[in-house]
């Protein structure tokens, strides 16, 4: 997913590929988030106008689905799986190790906007649990030690 910044005013080309109907709302929000990395207020307004629905409906839909975010994510979106298979094979320790290594809590982004840390319901690699993904690339069969190694570079730069 691209996280390059694009001003909400530049959304025109993204919106133009969608019909101006309410039922495209979710796909529209997904496309906007794919190009901006998140859904800023201006973009919500633009989406509402394009889909010909009130802003409240756009917020209603966007806030219902966990995929949508209203704050920018880090350049590397670290998502720890909290699915059942990962849970019974130690996902909690993996998450805590990351919180310590990155110096942020679940749901937060590092100050330099390099990393954000979130959890997901299941990545679908349950046979190789526990796992996490960084911008959709999955690492599997994790241990706290492997996590420390994988994110060692982050630790150096993390604000303590």
């Amino acid at each position: 997913m691209a996280t390059t910044e694009l001003s909400p005013l530049q959304l025109g080309p993204v919106l133009a590929t969608f019909e101006r109907r309410p039922d495209v709302l979710i796909s529209l929000l997904q496309a906007v988030q794919a190009s901006l990395g998140y859904l800023p207020p201006d973009a919500m307004g633009a989406v509402a106008r394009h889909a010909r629905v009130p802003r409240s409906r756009v917020y209603g839909v966007a806030s219902f689905y966990s995929q949508f975010r209203f704050n920018p994510a880090g350049r590397r979106r670290v998502a720890v799986c909290r699915g059942t298979a990962c849970h019974v094979s130690g996902a909690r320790m993996i998450l805590e190790e990351l919180e310590r290594t990155l110096g942020i809590a679940e749901g937060q982004t590092t100050e330099d906007r390099e990393y954000s840390l979130e959890t997901v319901a299941c990545i679908g690699c349950c046979g190789l649990s526990p796992c996490l993904s960084v911008n959709d690339e999955v690492s599997a069969k994790l241990t706290p030690k492997k996590v420390r190694k994988q994110f060692r570079a982050a630790k150096k730069s993390a604000p303590r």
């Binding site: 796909s27 929000l29 949508f68």
Partner: peptide, 23 residues
């Protein structure tokens, strides 16, 4: 159609609502 991360959307009537662009 891509889902947007809601478990309940696996339920058939919720899935339809989601396909129609609603919560």
């Amino acid at each position: 159609k891509e889902g947007a991360g809601a478990f309940v959307c696996g339920e058939e009537t919720a899935l339809i609502a989601s396909l129609e662009g609603r919560r």
